[in-house]
Simulated scan of single mutants.
Amino acid sequence: MTRGGLLILALACGPAFAGLLVDADSDWKEGEVVMPPAVEEARLRAFDVGASSPNRFFVDEGSVSVGEDGVVRYALVVRTAGGAENVTFEGIRCATGERRIYASGRPEGNWVAMKKSEWQAIGGNAYNRPRAALAWDYLCDGPAPPRNRDHALQLLKQRRDHYSSGGR
């Protein structure tokens, strides 16, 4: 079976298998990563993670980009019921079902790069559930990323619910 065939088979079997793939494109190289502007309340778009959680999840629409490398980058905001907030700048590779956290946001609006930032498989566990929802239910169409930033923003407005229905 070809590498492409393995990718399609793994994605059809579900997101848990997608991360087990060897990189679908061995020549792939990540493009330059540029930190977005500070998160702004007015640009936050809530999204549903498809599981009960006391937390609320948002993407800062001003931070969304789709690189020539196929990586969808965005600022993720997680707010707890107790009022705590966690802000991270992240990326998703639809082609491999992986995610990466580039930086952590600080209350004053600046970004601090993560000391250890590597591509990791997206799982459906509680910690990764917002990333899985973004990848499987909003941003990725199988191994294909959104066409561009406008397309990504359009997708964020509509939930496809592939993950919870067993699709992918």
Rank of each mutant, 00 (worst) to 15 (best):
S164T: 04
F58A: 00
A16M: 13
A144R: 07
V87Q: 14
G19W: 14
L156I: 09
R79W: 12
E118D: 14
W136H: 06
R73D: 07
S65E: 05
G109I: 02
R93M: 11
T2P: 15
V72P: 01
G91H: 06
G142Y: 03
R129C: 07
I101D: 15
R3M: 13
M1A: 15
Q154N: 10
M35P: 03
R159N: 08
A144E: 11
P107R: 07
R73V: 08
G123N: 05
L6F: 12
F89N: 00
L134R: 03
R147T: 06
L155G: 03
L7D: 00
V78S: 10
G124M: 12
G31S: 08
L156K: 03
R131K: 15
S52H: 13
C94D: 01
W28M: 02
L9H: 11
K157H: 11
P54T: 05
R56K: 15
R129A: 01
V39P: 01
S117Y: 09
M114T: 04
D69N: 06
K29I: 09
W28Y: 13
D27T: 14
K157I: 03
N55Y: 09
I8H: 08
L21C: 07
E98C: 04
A18R: 10
A16I: 04
V72R: 02
P54H: 06
S65R: 08
R147W: 11
A126F: 13
R147Y: 11
R3F: 12
A16R: 04
C13E: 13
N148C: 05
A95R: 12
Y74I: 00
T2I: 10
G83K: 06
K157C: 04
A10F: 13
V64W: 01
R43C: 08
E32D: 11
C94F: 01
T96C: 12
